[in-house]
Design a protein around this nucleic acid. Structure first.
Length: 592
DNA sequence: GGGCTGTACTG
DNA sequence: CAGTACA
DNA sequence: GCCC
């Protein structure tokens, strides 16, 4: 045939589809090449030039886009070939061409061939892709910034400013305000578009009212970056703005942008700890973990409307309306479905709702995903505090029958004081270290199963090697109806209408009760920062204790449970002391 | 320019 | 090993 | 995205 050497890219094709297509291509005398580097025509199920470039690059072929007429290399939709077969003749190739380019280098990569057929990309590849996209955007930003920088240098900047530029951090931040911050603000208020009011008056106003660093809370002045070293209450005077940061973080979660998740979590935790209503974006850059980006978002929010209740951030509103993100979030709410699976289901398999998942994919789901789908609605329903208390009381009753003297405590968001909960976290221990057998949790779960309180065990730690006595179980709970037994014995078609609840059980030996309580009380960023605090001191911290980097338990940290009943919090206090941290009540760990 | 919490199960 | 789930 |  007159075709150029051709290669079929396996991207997004199942192994079976890939093989079938190869056979069909061969049958139609398409000149297939065994390696991509010798091909000049690529067939692929890819929709964007960027992606084509990426796929070729992962195969060592570096390309630059090139106009169609002169390009020696092109990537064409597989559909072109299938349409040709259908039509019985060679159709014009142009409409199906996704990417045309010239090859600037071919890198022979050692190691495993990338021609493994994959159903989906690995996380690593996606990270790399995101990285590239981000770099591109950043380069544009830098360019724009450079222009402004030069303009400014012509004018106001002098030697004194220049040295301050590089000085100590909060100083640095203050001097930066007026340069990078204003750039960001100008950029954003420009992009804010029609709905935005002119930004200059607000900006001038901000300058006048800006809170100085001397009026800031003590932890800001000391530049305390870790949330475990400050008080973070559940209520914030800036809750409306913080909600927008949550939206951005959710987006970063769905795109597996670990770094973005960290950055926004840190910023959220800081603002959540900040006790005053924010007045200006200049105030924000003085806060640890917040810099020009967060400040720009705040400015965008502040200038979006005069009525605080009606303020928005245009970029965030776009995220909320993005149907892909809305769909991904919906799938992600299924228990057992993380970002990777959500993306695979939404983009590759095209499932648009939970019913699609059931209809087209049920058999392929993991066991816990099936449970997650089955109780999708129930698991979204928030639980009241009294429900968690009931669950605690029932489990405590069973545990005490198995082992008298057992003590329990509700941790998680319950302990932090939330009024509505997504699950119940119950810690279980016993003041006598010799009493808790490794099989205790298993026997407790079995006992609750017999009683009919547990529908499913999502996960149960069965391994109990010597030295490890902390065990966890994740359960699906349904409160029994009082006449359930009667219904069962009389074989009446009774239906239990109680909502299924997620319950996590943690059995800890008394020596590690304080650590375990700290860990399961959270919140997320608080625990993360706690580990950072320990890492900075060369300690490794697990739920079972604090260890030197290489093995030995750190002396002076005693989180032991000494007494029955009220011993939990005292054990936790001793851990704070041992770590050199100030005690924080659970209600002050609401890092969001 | 490199780093970002740490652990354990499931498939 | 990758993905997910805890807080 | 922010920090060192």
């Amino acid at each position: 045939s007159h075709l150029s050497p051709t290669f079929l890219l396996p991207t997004r094709l199942t192994p079976a589809a890939h093989a079938a297509l190869l056979a069909q291509l061969a049958a139609h005398n398409v000149p297939l090449t065994p390696t991509p580097s010798t091909a000049s025509l690529f067939l692929a199920d890819i929709n964007t030039p960027t992606r084509c470039r990426f796929e070729l690059r992962t195969r060592g072929i570096m390309t630059e886009p090139e106009p169609l007429l002169t390009a020696p290399l092109r990537v064409v939709k597989v559909a072109w070939f299938t349409e040709c077969v259908k039509a019985g003749r060679v159709l014009p190739i142009e409409p199906w061409t996704v990417y045309t380019a010239t090859v600037c280098a071919v890198v022979v990569t050692p190691g495993p061939s990338p021609e493994r057929v994959r159903v989906k990309e690995t996380v690593r590849e996606k990270e790399r892709k995101r990285e590239r996209e981000r770099e591109k955007v950043q380069a544009e930003e830098e360019q724009r910034r450079g222009v402004m920088e030069r303009a400014r240098r012509d004018g106001v900047r002098n030697a004194e400013e220049d040295s301050r530029w590089r000085s100590e951090r909060s100083e640095y931040k203050r001097s930066v305000y007026g340069t990078r911050v204003t750039d960001e603000i100008i950029k954003l208020s420009k992009s804010a578009g029609r709905g935005a009011r002119p930004s200059t008056p607000e900006y001038e106003e901000e300058r006048i009212k800006a809170r100085g660093i001397d009026e800031m809370p003590e932890w800001v002045r000391r530049n305390v970056k870790l949330s475990c070293c400050r008080s973070t209450p559940a209520d914030s005077p800036n809750a409306d703005f913080i909600a927008h940061l949550h939206t951005i973080r959710d987006h970063r979660t769905l795109t597996s942008d670990e770094v973005g998740i960290r950055a926004y979590s840190t910023a959220i935790a800081t603002l959540q700890a900040y006790p005053y209503p924010l007045i200006s974006s200049s105030e924000i850059v003085l806060l640890p973990g917040c810099n020009v980006k967060i400040a720009a978002l705040f400015h965008s929010w502040l200038s979006s409307h005069t009525d605080p209740k009606l303020r928005t951030v245009p970029d965030v509103e776009k995220l909320k309306l993005n149907e892909n993100l809305v769909g991904l979030a919906m799938l992600h709410r299924i228990w057992g479905v993380g970002p990777e699976t959500a993306r695979e289901w939404w983009f590759v398999r095209g499932w648009r709702n939970v019913d699609d998942v059931v209809e087209y994919g049920w058999k392929g789901l993991t066991r816990v995903q099936q449970i997650g789908v089955k109780y999708y609605d129930d698991f979204q329903k928030p639980m009241m505090r009294w429900e968690a208390e009931r669950i605690r009381d029932i489990i405590t009753h069973h545990a005490t029958l198995l082992l008298p003297g057992t003590t329990t405590i509700l941790a998680g968001s319950y302990r932090r004081g939330s009024t509505s909960l997504t699950d119940a976290d119950l810690l279980i221990s016993h003041p006598d270290p010799t009493q808790l057998a490794p099989s205790f949790l298993e026997r407790l779960v079995a006992s609750l199963e017999t009683e009919g309180c547990i529908n499913y065990t999502l996960r149960l730690d069965r391994t109990a090697p010597p030295g490890r006595t902390l065990q966890t179980a994740m359960l699906v709970w349904q409160e029994q109806q009082y006449d359930d037994v009667r219904l069962r014995t009389l074989r009446l078609p009774g239906r239990n209408a109680n909502v299924r609840r997620r319950v996590d059980l943690v059995v800890t030996r008394p020596e590690t009760a304080g650590m375990a309580l700290m860990r399961w009380t959270g919140g997320g960023t608080w625990v993360r920062d706690l580990k950072t605090w320990c890492a900075e001191r060369g300690w490794r911290v697990g739920a079972e204790g604090v260890w030197e980097r290489d093995g030995e338990r750190v002396g002076g940290i005693d989180g032991g449970l000494r007494r029955e009943g009220e011993g939990w919090e005292e054990a936790e206090r001793r851990v704070f002391v041992g770590m050199g941290l100030e005690w924080r009540a659970p209600g002050e760990r609401c890092t969001g």
